[in-house]
Simulated scan of single mutants.
Amino acid sequence: MSLLKMRILVLLEKLKKVTAVADELGMKQPTISFHMRKLEEEWGVPLFEMKTGKVMLTTSGKLLHHYAEQIDRIYNEAQSRFHERKQSGRHTYVIGSIDAASAILLQGSWFKRIAEITDMQFSFTTASSGDLFDSLLAGSIDLVLSGGLPASPLLHHELVLESSLSLYIPDQHPLSQSPGVPSYRLAGSPFIQVNEPSLQAAIKQWENSERITLQTDWHTDRVELALSAVRSGLCLAILPSNLNSFQLDGIQVIPLPGQNQVWQLYACWRSDYWNPPLLQRILQLLHNKKTDNPTLF
């Protein structure tokens, strides 16, 4: 068995043509056919069959493809990581997060703390939870911060933050002058919604408990843009209570009326992560981030 043969098997399942696989690998068609025969000799069973001019995998071929795909993915992951190390002389640790998580956890002193524990390079990216989990499984991300839990048994998770929800109001809004805002007074006010499913699920639970429906006139995938819209006086927002104070000029943050609602944030990683001690140190820093803001609990 060789990595090349595993790569050929993966590409045959994807492209269905020997010529297409040869073009993809920059090889000649007879070379691909030779490796196909060798694969069948090595495993002692038919792996390929021709149907309507396409190369199809037999049942045995599909079984081997399951493992070949993992071998090919892991090898590509290793190539990518070592290329980064050759370019910079250091490994790169990649953290992916939903935008709401980066607005809360990846701020201020946290960067200084993480720089003190390792000489690795760090890369940060934001996306939806689904895309982040796909990247985590593919090996292109080391750690994901998400409001939702991964479905794959290959991914582990740990709760790193619980935050109550608060009402974000422009300074000059009439409701900002009220000592306590009853829920029913919010029903007619325009709101901006941050399109994060876990956050919206928590808000919906609050709406149901208060028996109201908010009027959502604005949508965004960024917490920063939601705060800008609130600051303009056009709308209100319901967000986690612990956004950093430097983002809140012109905005008042008051407790959400009625039943207290909690939003949770999880750190997720692959169960076979190659450096468990480093992972635990970073998780500890994420837990320690809670002490930076008294509104966390």
Rank of each mutant, 00 (worst) to 15 (best):
R7N: 14
Q29G: 06
Q205M: 02
E196R: 00
Q29T: 14
L279G: 06
D249A: 09
T92W: 02
I8K: 05
Q177Y: 04
A127S: 14
G233Q: 05
N275Y: 05
E162V: 04
A226M: 02
H35L: 07
F122G: 09
E162I: 01
P240Q: 03
F34W: 06
L278Y: 05
L3N: 13
L9F: 08
T58L: 04
Y67V: 10
P190H: 04
D142N: 11
A127G: 12
I8R: 04
V194L: 05
L39N: 10
S183H: 01
A202I: 00
V223F: 00
N244I: 05
T92R: 09
I95W: 02
L239H: 00
L167R: 00
L11D: 11
R90A: 15
G26D: 12
P153R: 11
D23W: 01
A22Q: 05
Q107C: 07
N293S: 06
Q252M: 03
M27F: 10
D217K: 09
L167N: 00
P153S: 15
Q177P: 01
T52I: 04
P174T: 07
S178C: 13
S88P: 01
A151E: 14
D99W: 00
G26R: 05
G148T: 14
K5C: 13
E158L: 06
G108A: 11
L105Q: 07
S163Q: 06
C235S: 14
E24K: 09
G26K: 04
L199G: 07
I254M: 08
T58E: 10
